[in-house]
Amino acid sequence: MTGSTFWLYTGCITATYAIAIIGLNVIAGLAGQVNLATTAFLAFGGYGYAIYTVTLHIEPWLGLVLAMVGAVIISAVLGLILLRLRGYYLAMATFTLAIAVASSANAASITGGAVGIPDIPPLTVGPIDFGLGSQLSFYGLAWGIVIVLVLLVWLANASPIGRAWRLIGSREELAMSLGVSTLKYKVAAFVVAGGLGALSGAMYAELTTYVSSDLYSSSVIVVFMAMLFVGGLGTMWGPVIGALIVTVLPSLIGGLQGATLLVVDSLFLAVIVLFPSGLGMAWRDARTFRYLVPRRLWSREK
């Protein structure tokens, strides 16, 4: 790949990730519900798109729509069941869901088992081809979606809906006692995360023309949580910043061969320790840098 195609491709991946993180941010950052099941919905989108287009030979754009609709229905049903759990129990349940989906995908024949599904056709809408050969149109589409989503989430966050989500995230009992149908709002956020996860998964499959179960393994959950936290949980641009850093960083520090992963993950860890509110809110954390120096400060502990 030449330099410019490489960066175009990286830009496409960044935007694709960002779509999923924006959704994750709605449930985890705004509504405050730990959702570790993002990869499950990436898988629903990715495999859905692959099965519709490769196995069933459905038109790619229709396959994309069907994959998203399917994920929305699944996330609504799962949300109604799982979101009655709270805190660590919800974390565990969603984590379990993600692993169960990945390990089923690895074993089932409809998903191509451990091999996965190759040769996913490009998405064409009318005369426009969004496939591998024409990354510029994919780039435009993906970043267009990202910008619209950031705007929508920003509008929703500033509206009574966003306030209700944040109220649920910080004081769920108070939310209930003020008449907020907490389950409905949590499920709505979960569906947003599920639908956007599926969109992201399908777009990733379209871009790389390939899906397999290791795209949805537990280490990918870590990557997605890292993107959300590095960017800044609950911030509007954080998901985009996080996706950008996580995809671009490995390319920037290339040439380390095997050590690249280690360096990248260590840098994430350092960012979380130094800026726990995320880089989008770095100014807020800069004020507490002095507490990084170990002294007899434990009295601050609550």
């Binding site: 306030r163 944040r166 109220l167 910080s170 004081r171 009992e173 108070l174 939310a175 209930m176 006692s177 003020l178 008449g179 907020v180 149908s181 907490t182």
Partner: peptide, 23 residues
Amino acid sequence: RPYDLVRLGLARTFQSSRPVVGL
């Protein structure tokens, strides 16, 4: 559920009151 009772005209406060951050 508590949120349905609010619509029927019932409201309550809590012993520990923490304002919602950011509002």
